[in-house]
Write a protein that binds this DNA or RNA. Structure first.
Lengths: 158, 158
DNA sequence: ATAGATGTTAGAGTATACTCGAAGTCAAGA
DNA sequence: TCTTGACTTCGAGTATACTCTAACATCTAT
């Protein structure tokens, strides 16, 4: 005899609300879920694997529509293995780009944290403008160069 | 005599559309921008610094409302340096968490890419289930453990 | 047998961030 | 002077991803 999980069980275990699970189903992400005679969703043990995959794709920034495409391939079995590989490989590339961008932002934010602390010590957000050029910290020069590029419309190459 | 940039100039230089710039203004992000007699926005050279800061906060995942809070502090000058430091420091933490999460996802996606390639070679998405336990790659065992935890509602500690 | 928890659907509502269209104003060159 | 292109506001529309409500069905425990 097979054990089934109700939508509430799945919600409690995965932290995805029952509302959201039904929304995902409506959007075609959960077509693999069985139904009882009366129409209730019956999640099986094996269903947690594709459900987990959905959460990974979501957290990787993939939109619902594209996840649906993936699930459509999933339902077709072995003949779509290659297509699914391609989708994951593309997503891998997207993740690398997202991480690189956030790391770039982190560098700027780190600088800003440092700069605000320096400015706070001196009680003046523009303190460096009153210093002789040779006493201005190189980090400030570098940041100002970035802002100048932004103003001049300089496009950064990859 | 002072040089001004029109909204179109700024759009062309920064890649932010004029529509979006007006939207940002309406949302209170661009209160520092001067206006001409006739109501046209006049961007100054110095305005590109806060505008750049806005783009950094945006790309860091900060919502418009919170960026507005930051700009409100910005307009108040030196007395808000500490508060602005705190906001950037919080954003720094948020960025570290976002990067950590994406790196976790990258690990899973890397695994999936590898697994789909193995499955494609064998023409069977569940090939490992037909292998004797000792021949199953440890990466597969590990991934299945993650899925089991997901099903059992195991919460990962930080 | 009945209450109460949990499930179902359809569809409306919310939040966020744009994105666009209409109607009108303004400034510079032919 | 007039045309043209860029600017203005206001408000509506779009896209994404939920999130919730209403009305009803069903399952479970006393």
């Amino acid at each position: 005899m097979k054990k089934y999980y109700t939508i509430g069980d799945v919600a409690a275990r995965t932290g995805i609300s029952a509302h959201t699970l039904r929304y995902y189903d409506k959007e075609g992400l959960l077509s693999f879920v069985e139904r009882s005679e009366s129409g209730k969703r019956l999640f099986k043990k094996e269903d947690f694997e594709p459900l987990y995959t959905i959460t990974v794709l979501k957290k990787s920034g993939m939109p619902i529509k594209k996840i649906r495409e993936f699930m459509t391939l999933y339902l077709q079995g072995n003949k779509t293995i290659h297509d699914r590989y391609v989708m994951f490989n593309d997503q891998r590339q997207s993740l690398l780009e997202q991480i690189a961008e956030l790391e770039d932002m982190l560098k700027i934010v780190d600088y800003k944290c440092w700069y605000f602390q320096e400015a706070e010590k001196r009680g003046d957000i523009n303190y460096y403008q009153k210093l002789p050029a040779e006493e201005v910290d190189p980090r400030i020069i570098e940041f100002n160069k970035i802002v100048d590029d932004f103003r001049e419309g300089v496009i950064k190459e990859d």
